[in-house]
Design a protein around this nucleic acid. Structure first.
Lengths: 195, 195
DNA sequence: TTCGTCATGTAATGGGTTACATGATTAC
DNA sequence: GTAATCATGTAACCCATTACATGACGAA
């Protein structure tokens, strides 16, 4: 029970929905394919997998069909545990995909959600994108305010750092604007009057 | 002893070098003036301050001069503890400022170091900037490689996410290039032949 | 007088890493 | 045969947050 990391749990479920995998491979996918994710260590991943099994969301399949003589002969062989999503797991992931909320627009969480946008319904995508955007706009407001208050007593490097990080945030807002635009365009094409 | 957070310790020492402060104010400065830093909670900050005192790097000054009658009359009054950097603390911070190494070019650590570049010698600044840059270039290489390997089996959203985060990294590299350029220009002005 | 913000602190908990331990398989 | 990488796992630790507890000070 418990040992829920939110992000990791979500990503694991999402990856396994595409196809069953064992832990080691899962970890690679977490770093590479999904790129953005930081590399979770085995010390995090394996216990997480166990807990997902305990919840009934994953099933372990310790390789080799039992009727296979060669498998039996290699008795001492370390089991390569393949995990696959159960029906309950699929259902649970579906729920997670449908969920939107303030936690959803935080940095890491947002990246994880975005990575599975391919499986997400458009209205949920919109809510997440818009939530993220307003979250960033809030952040910008705070930065601008504190900058206005303290600009005078800050040295050049501190100022430059603030300028650069504000620009980064502004850049992400523009990116979100484009994404939201194209989501809307997609909707319009579907529900619009004609053409 | 211990309870060292690296970043927090460094930032606290650096802020207190400018002027003595109490914990509450310190925390505000950590969020606002230095902007980039995430808001450390009191549950992190206060124990950290205690440990810095235990190390002899900070000294506590529980306000009010003792000869002040009013201070004595307000017996029950909650002490407002002002922390100031000791000579040892200053020396220790100097050492931290001079240190460069692989840890120094990681995201959060780098931001903290950059925020105190005003107090850092130019050659150390250069090493940190260049270290950071090569760290990012490494990261770019990995991203490009994994993208090349798996582009085909990734959906549009995953691709877009990777594209955007690569662009972010590339943008930071350009920023670092400019900074390094202007550091070099600064050195040239000083040591160059004339004008 | 009550509410917001200033101000300090602790204990429980969370979420993660590192180091360690083990062993199979593949490539050279 | 030996090194790299595949593969799984545990225990000790680290860093930080949350929730809680306490209380002063100023303004409405």
């Amino acid at each position: 029970m418990s040992r829920r990391s939110g992000i990791l749990e979500f990503a694991v479920l999402g990856l396994l929905r595409e196809s069953p995998m064992h832990g080691y491979e899962l970890r690679k996918r977490l770093n590479t394919s999904l790129g953005v994710f930081r590399a979770f260590s085995y010390g995090t991943l394996y216990p997480c997998l166990k807990s997902l099994v305990a919840n009934g969301w994953l099933a372990e399949e310790t390789g080799g069909a039992p009727e296979d003589a060669r498998a039996a002969s290699l008795a001492g062989r370390r089991a390569k545990i393949v995990y696959r999503l159960t029906a309950e797991g699929k259902e649970h992931f579906e729920e997670l995909l449908a969920h939107t909320g303030p936690d959803t627009w935080e940095d890491e969480h947002f990246a994880a959600r975005f990575a599975f946008f391919g499986q997400t319904s458009r209205d949920v995508r919109m809510r997440v994108l818009e939530g993220r955007r307003s979250r960033l706009e809030e952040r910008l407001e705070k930065m601008r305010a504190s900058l206005a208050r303290s600009r005078s007593r800050l040295d050049d490097y501190t100022l430059e750092l603030q300028r650069h990080s504000m620009e980064s945030v502004e850049r992400e807002v523009r990116w979100l604007n484009e994404l939201i635009e194209s989501e809307r365009a997609g909707r319009d094409r579907r529900t619009g009057p004609d053409k």
